[in-house]
């Protein structure tokens, strides 16, 4: 199953900005995060197709998964 993973802020360091990646069917958001070596504690927000999602959600073929560290501003 292929979907796009997008990383933001320092999660991009030594990784990538956006990549279409291949994962086994049923891979959860949490498993994607772990596969990238990102500390779950540092994850602030995750979205699938511009909607907030939970760590146990499963992206579908062609989805856009965005992973952000805890950030703020305003």
């Amino acid at each position: 199953m292929r979907f796009t993973v997008k990383l933001f802020a320092y999660f991009r360091d030594n990784r990538f900005r956006a990549e279409v990646r291949d994962y086994p069917e049923g891979t959860t958001v949490e498993q994607v995060i772990r596969s990238l070596g990102i500390d779950l504690e540092e994850v602030g927000v995750t979205m699938i197709n511009s909607r907030h999602c939970t760590l146990d959600q499963v992206p579908a073929e062609g989805d856009q998964l965005a992973i952000f560290p805890a950030i703020g501003g305003g």
């Binding site: 802020a9 979205m47 511009s50 965005a66 952000f68 501003g73």
Partner: peptide, 18 residues
């Protein structure tokens, strides 16, 4: 994160949210 990127860190997340 504010120290590293400033408040402008928001452009990408607000864009992503639509």
């Amino acid at each position: 994160a504010l120290a590293q990127y400033g408040t402008n860190v928001l452009v990408n997340i607000i864009n992503e949210s639509g």
